[in-house]
């Protein structure tokens, strides 16, 4: 069962400095993903869970298991960086930072998840301003 349908980057073409995805992520965000107990608190509390293809705990699991297709997941772009997950995580893992690290890997390849020109006029008018701010914030790291 493949939960991820998009392909914005060919994951097999990516080379990581330390060999494994998880090591790269850990270096980028400073969080230790292996401390995760897979309890699901982050996912249950996430305000955007309905639209995510992978839930936040699955993102961590994918990274630990070195499943690089996680980089093509919608989830990392849907994350609103609200820190609810980080606030509640019993293992004190800052999941928001992990999401940011995953985005950074893509962004540093100069690939943008969202192409501004592809957003229709209707959407531009209906999407809250804050969402755009977040989107661009992601872009500048």
């Amino acid at each position: 069962m493949n939960k991820i349908s998009d392909e914005i980057v060919n994951v097999n073409s990516l080379k990581f400095k330390k060999g494994e995805l998880v090591k790269e992520i850990e270096e980028l965000c400073g969080e230790n993903l292996f401390g995760c107990y897979q309890c699901g608190t982050c996912s249950a509390g996430c305000p955007f869970i309905e639209d995510m293809d992978l839930s936040p705990d699955e993102v961590i699991r994918y990274v630990i298991l070195d499943k690089k297709e996680v980089l093509n997941s919608k989830t990392i772009w849907l994350c609103a960086a609200c820190y609810t997950c980080a606030e509640r995580c019993p293992r004190d893992i800052n999941i928001t930072k992990i999401m940011e690290a995953l985005r950074q890997i893509i962004l540093r390849k100069n690939i943008d998840r969202t192409n501004l020109t592809n957003i229709s006029k209707d959407e531009k008018e209906s999407i809250p301003q804050l969402a755009f701010v977040c989107l661009f914030r992601k872009n500048v790291g």
Binding site: C39, T41, S43, A44, R88
Partner: peptide
């Protein structure tokens, strides 16, 4: 028994 830690 449900494996999952409730968030809220």
């Amino acid at each position: 028994y449900i494996r999952g830690r409730p968030a809220s």
